[in-house]
């Protein structure tokens, strides 16, 4: 079997994703559609929350991918720092905007869900606060990438930021939990979906989660391909200038 690291070669990556990307993209659309249509139209209304609960089929997968995207960026950054594979650094760069949007979707659907359920668009609940902080980390990471001209320098600096940011993001998460327990006892409004749900909900939810995972994969592959092309274009332009 070919080594996994072969795919870190730009040419090999481009050739593989030439045929892989369409498959992943189609699979993402199909699986997500099944999950969402099943979730929206073929599940019973919750006896307490009514049909509002069905936003869970977008909310939970988006929130999950928001965290997974950061974890993927962390792994890709480590691979770049240790093994210097350019594709890895560019994949981390491509994943950031997707993670940012997933975080935003999670926050917005959460607000839309929370309004009828809790009577408020926003609460400084630890989980909500953590997501808002994650959003800020994504913003900083993307801003740093866009501020640096030299691609390798950008890859190095953002990788270190991702590493340090991950530690502080975890610290912030615990700080948020601690903080809200500290003075406002028992104000936790968070509903932990999945814990009280039966299979009528679980099945479409898992399908939807898989779909979102595939969407993420497709977008990251497409984004990485774009970054590789942009990098090549830059090299060609430099070459023109030097000739």
């Amino acid at each position: 079997m070919a080594s996994f690291w072969e795919y870190a070669n730009p040419l090999k990556f481009m050739r593989t994703t030439d045929w892989l990307l369409p498959i992943v993209a189609i699979a993402a659309v199909v699986v997500t559609s099944i999950g969402l249509i099943w979730g929206f139209f073929f599940t019973p209304d919750d006896f307490r929350q009514g049909s509002t609960v069905k936003i869970v089929f977008i909310h939970v997968p988006a929130a999950m991918m928001a965290i997974n995207a950061w974890v993927m960026m962390l792994v890709a950054s480590l691979i770049w720092l240790i093994r210097r594979h350019h594709v890895s650094a560019l994949a981390a760069k491509a994943a950031a905007p997707v993670g940012l949007v997933m975080t935003l979707i999670g926050l917005i659907t959460g607000a839309v869900w929370g309004q009828p359920m809790w009577g408020t668009w926003w609460a400084w609940d630890p989980r909500l606060t953590s997501f808002l902080i994650l959003f800020l980390f994504y913003l900083g990471y993307i801003a740093l990438w866009s501020a640096i001209d030299d691609p390798d320098t950008g890859a190095d600096l953002t990788a270190v930021l991702c590493l340090v940011g991950s530690v502080f993001a975890v610290l912030s998460r615990y700080a948020a939990i601690f903080w809200n327990q500290g003075l406002h006892q028992g104000a936790s409004l968070s509903v932990a979906p999945g814990t009280r749900m039966d299979w009528a909900y679980k099945a479409p939810l898992y399908i939807s989660m898989t779909g979102f995972g595939l969407i993420f994969l497709a977008l990251v592959l497409a984004g990485t391909r774009t970054e590789i092309r942009a990098r090549r274009m830059k090299a060609l332009v430099t070459r023109e200038r030097m000739a």
Partner: peptide
């Protein structure tokens, strides 16, 4: 370029745990 503004954007999220525990 524009390092100052970017600096705030990068550093402030990292300050969150210190702020939370300090103010607490």
């Amino acid at each position: 370029k524009r390092g100052g503004l970017l600096l705030s954007l990068l550093v402030l999220p990292l300050y969150i745990p210190t702020l939370v525990f300090g103010a607490e």
